[in-house]
Amino acid sequence: EREFGFKKDEDDQSLRNANWFEFKDNRLEAIAWILRNGAAHGFQFRTAYLSITYFDLFLSKRSFKGDQTTWLRTLSVACLSLAAKMEEQRSPLLSEYKVEDCIIEWRWINQMELAVLATLEWRLDSITPFPFIDYFITILKLNQESPSDTKYNR
């Protein structure tokens, strides 16, 4: 039996040693993976954007042990999968995500999904700029079509 409370980790601060610089290249790689795979599954751009937000928030709050590549790949898949579940009509099975150069078991992805949810305290509905862009396009009448047809929403 496991539980996933919303209390912040006691040692949250000690984990927050912003692994930024260490991860700079890996982060870019992860973003490229998210964008590529989001497009391959036909997701809206905002879904990819959301998953990058989850990715960054998670990295800023947690540290990890073990193989960096596997760990970051697993995190990328989990973030994209969570964002798809929030935003898309149909979310792919975990096994449908294609990961290059390492083997990831779906159990790990599932564990990672839980870790991301717990770390973000289940607040997955961060506001993206995309609805605002559509909104302004509508009121400024830049586009006569329905706002959901603009390229930002695809």
């Binding site: 969570l82 929030m86 599932n110 305290e121 607040r123 997955l124």
Partner: peptide
Amino acid sequence: GKFEGIHPNLIREVTILRR
């Protein structure tokens, strides 16, 4: 035998209730 991880409805419902 398909595996989809945490159910989307659960994620949405809890996220909304949290809000």
